[in-house]
Design a binder for these strands. Structure first.
Length: 112
DNA sequence: CTTTTGACTACGG
DNA sequence: TCCGTAGCCAAAA
């Protein structure tokens, strides 16, 4: 994981708007790193900056990445609820909440 | 050099 | 819907 990749990933995560979520793979794609979904998880694990909306990154299936019984799972669910994103029956409805960045938003990352 | 390891994903059954 | 199974791919062991 080059620092550059991590930087790109964090930039994308920070641009996920409140009220929507993105999958690990989607973040990787937008960061110009197709096939690197697992790297996104790794970068998030290693970076707990205050302004980082890590909770908006979930699995492509709509499930959160953590065990239901864990504290981190409950915290993520709470943060999402505060965003207006509800976790129903263990999953977020991706058809409703998945981030669909506009062409403008995508192009804004051009330095990649 | 090889094997293992992930906050993952697509696909079947 | 829920599982197991292959793929995935760079980093660490």
């Amino acid at each position: 994981m080059s620092n550059l990749s991590a930087k790109r990933i964090l930039t994308i995560v920070k641009s996920i708007p409140k009220g929507s979520v993105a999958s690990y793979g989607q973040v990787a794609d937008l960061a110009g790193l197709p096939g690197r979904a697992r790297l996104v998880g790794k970068v998030l694990k290693e970076n707990s900056e205050k302004d980082l909306p890590w909770h908006r990154v979930i699995r492509a299936s709509g499930q959160l990445a953590f065990d239901e019984a864990s504290t981190v799972f409950k915290q993520q669910r709470k943060l999402l609820a505060n965003d207006g994103v509800t976790v129903c029956n263990r999953r977020v409805d991706m058809s409703l909440f998945q981030w669909k960045p506009s062409l403008e938003e995508v192009l804004h990352q051009l330095p990649f």
